[in-house]
Design a protein around this nucleic acid. Structure first.
Lengths: 342, 342
DNA sequence: GAGTGCCCCTAAACCGGTTAAGAAGCAGCC
DNA sequence: GGCTGCTTCTTAACCGGTTTAGGGGCACTC
């Protein structure tokens, strides 16, 4: 096993020019069928593989997509989203011979720097934009950097990028209706930061759902999606004179922390307090009680995003927004009728 | 903002040849100080940035490292290791202008294919090898593919790659001693697969620790590091005629599932059963009871691995194995004296 | 029989760097 | 004055592809 053959080797062996080999290998017209076959079989016999590097240089493409993950170091390990999401991306990228460049940073300055670096070094042809924020500056940034992108969810600003969205609403609605049907009247929501679009959207869905049922929606507390935040706000809610009998958490991590807080206080879940999460993370099934949650098709989300972005990079014309199946309620054991009306 | 300047632009502007510009920019000897300064200031004025693509093609380097993650889809979301590990890697890579290519696969064939693809496409200069297995075929594979690598831990086969290791032993020993000191005599271990080196090593440490204390070490059950596996084996242990009063789990995920199983049976943790995990994952602190566990310097591990691999890629001579601070016991609330001797 | 058009192919430039070979200029030395 | 050797710089090849311009051969047309 020596050095890898190049198209020059193939050309020599097949008795044609370099250029023609390139044409034949790329299935372009203007090559006689017989010649094309000969070139292909020679390439095959020599074990020729294209050099991504050379192709990158001449075609001005990277054949890779990027994912910048900005997360507080404290949250990063426990967040079930990204590993599954990356697995989904991989499902679309690997068969296409594309690679995924991942960058993980802990704050917004580093995030911006990371995008700039990806663009300056021509590492990727496009990026997947997660965790959209209100008035998200990254959209203009990426447009300025001339990177392609897809956004996870619909941004609240003008965007030239297609979106891949999962509607959180139905999941939250189902959770609230489920709790109301069980008899709960005082239902709280531990929300993610309203600066993040999905945080805000989940809150709004929660409020809408309560209103539709004619219930008060005053118990919405905003925090930061972290376990620490979930624990703190849960404690605050339980300290109220009239504490809620059920809490809808905006993600599983906060729900798990909230569960711990309740149990620590001697409350029984679900008898004294019902709890729902959001994410459908696997670990929730193994807790005691297992966590009623809202599942999101994360893997599918990753796959669809990567596919759409690839199409957009190629210059496919009909790239348009994609709506994935909505989030769905997954009832497990952390919800039950409130004790007061039992 | 037009097209990016190349060294040809710099050369023209500075009135020298392309080659000399390259020499000046790479700080190589043979350039007059005055000329060098002129070239550098012209480059600076034009806003010249090197093209990684062009450099890759001519220097036969990718300026990127790879990480192939092989995990069952079921485990992937809940595993706290990789996000933190990647964050650590990033800490070393970003300042060096290097990128991280991540590939996530679900089985061994796909894993091999992934390494082959990374090598065939020249995507990376080296890879970080995690989750070493017994007689790990990947080492020979990577040597054959002429990729550089570092291994996480010491392999049990001949390897030309440097290792970055964290000794699990002291953590497991501490956990066992902690439990023994509390009065436990029947201590079980829910182990990871013995086909994985760190799974086997933790078991062995467990057995050694018990022996050293003169206790029986017959309660070692092997499973797969998953929540489902942890739950199932915990159930089996608790079904024994003489069940253990404490269980040492080989990772946090299994410990959390085990905790759920015990509580589901009406056992109180830690009163009826003590539990320890392994990983030091953050979420464990918020459970009820909070999980006594063994912490590993994951972030540091990632950083050190990436740095070592970068040095190895450059051809630095004195790359040798690195031993990081050993894993440490973190006592929280899931361990207490057994009820029997209370 | 010249002109036109098409098909198949070659030659060569190009992408943006690195690097080997060699030339020019100059000082030092005998 | 010629030789040696050093520094500084240029030229040109090279990495491995893609792509444009154009040439030769052939059939068809009038």
């Amino acid at each position: 096993m020596t050095i890898r053959p190049t198209i020059a080797d193939v050309a020599r062996e097949a008795g044609v020019s370099k250029g023609l080999v390139s044409f034949a290998l790329n299935d372009r017209p203007g090559v006689a069928a017989e010649t094309r076959d000969r070139i292909l079989s020679v390439a095959n016999a020599l074990g020729w593989r294209p050099s991504v590097r050379a192709r990158s240089l001449s075609t001005d493409r990277s054949f890779a997509l990027g994912l910048v993950i900005a997360r507080d170091p404290e949250i990063i390990s426990s967040d079930p989203f990204f590993p599954a999401f990356i697995a989904g991306i991989e499902g679309a990228l690997a068969p296409a011979g594309q690679a995924l460049v991942v960058s993980m940073v802990s704050n917004e300055e580093a995030e911006v720097a990371s995008y700039r670096q990806l663009a300056a070094h021509d590492r990727v042809d496009g990026v997947i934009l997660t965790d959209l924020r209100r008035n998200d500056p990254r959209i203009a940034l990426l447009e300025g950097l001339r990177l392609k992108a897809v956004t996870l969810g619909h941004p609240d600003v003008e965007s030239s990028f297609p979106a891949v969205a999962v509607d959180d609403g139905p999941g939250i609605h189902s959770a609230v209706e489920h709790l109301a049907a069980l008899g709960h009247r005082r239902i709280a929501h531990v929300a993610g930061p309203s600066s993040m679009l999905h945080g805000g959207r989940r809150s709004q869905s929660f409020i809408d759902a309560l209103r539709a049922l004619g219930l008060a929606s005053d118990l919405v507390v905003e925090t930061d999606f972290s376990a620490a935040g979930g624990a703190k706000t849960t404690a605050a809610l339980l300290d109220l004179d009239e504490p809620p009998t059920a809490i809808v958490f905006a993600n599983d991590l906060m729900a798990i922390a909230g569960l711990g807080v309740a149990q620590r206080r001697g409350l029984r879940v679900p008898d004294d307090l019902s709890i729902t999460g959001f994410d459908g993370s696997d670990i929730g099934a193994y807790l005691y009680p297992s966590l009623t949650t809202v599942t999101t098709p994360v893997l599918e989300w990753g796959r669809a995003s990567a596919e759409l972005l690839l199409r957009s990079v190629i210059g496919d014309d009909d790239v348009h927004d994609i709506e994935l199946p909505a989030a769905q309620l997954l009832v497990r054991m952390s919800t039950a009728p409130p004790r007061t009306i039992r």
